[in-house]
């Protein structure tokens, strides 16, 4: 969706940014990509590092988890883009983190140990996209009935449902 930008140049342009500085100091290998558009900074994070990255960012001042959602980029692989929106009350800044997952094993560490607020959001992403969150305290569907088949917000799920 977002045109690929050169990671190093974006990171260099935002070296002053608290999030970028904290991540470059603690987990430089966790940043898989970076983008800056519409005055919003996006960081692509390696999937195994997301919980540690969130912990680092929380101590760097990004104290509030605003949202967790997902985008299905079907048929591009890796197709599922789990998207986190963080907010810093003290810096008055937002930050977007993205983790890419493929169809064979759509699983990522839950960030509920860092922000309990992620609980409902991750259940919603599991319910509507079929992304598993390892370590989630209550990994159940939230919107749809427990016996529902499929994950409706995936692009290969027809708008009118399976007949």
């Amino acid at each position: 969706m977002e045109s690929a930008q050169d990671k190093d140049s974006v990171l260099a342009a935002h070296a002053e940014n608290r999030a970028v500085a904290a991540l470059m100091a603690r987990h430089p290998q966790a940043i898989a990509g970076a983008g800056f558009a519409h005055r919003e900074l996006t960081l692509w994070i390696a999937r195994q590092a997301i919980r540690e990255v969130c912990r680092t960012l929380r101590s760097a001042g990004y104290n509030f988890l605003a949202d967790v959602t997902c985008v299905d980029r079907y048929p591009v692989e890796p197709r599922l883009q789990v998207t986190y929106h963080l907010l810093s009350h003290s810096l008055k800044e937002r930050l977007r983190l993205c983790v890419l997952l493929d169809t064979r094993d759509p699983a990522v560490d839950s960030i509920t140990p860092v922000w309990p607020a992620a609980n409902f959001y991750e259940r919603e992403v599991w319910d509507l996209f079929g992304v598993r969150f390892d370590g989630h305290p209550n990994p159940r569907r939230i919107m749809l009935p427990e016996e529902w088949e499929g994950h409706p917000l995936r692009k290969d799920y027809p708008v009118e449902g399976y007949r």
């Binding site: 969706m1 977002e2 045109s3 558009a37 519409h38 919003e40 996006t42 605003a66 949202d67 985008v71 998207t83 929106h85 937002r94 977007r96």
Partner: peptide, 15 residues
């Protein structure tokens, strides 16, 4: 144009 944005406002109930 292609891209992704997040826009938040203060609704009567919050963000």
């Amino acid at each position: 144009p292609a891209g992704q944005v997040y826009q938040a406002i203060e609704s009567p109930r919050g963000e």
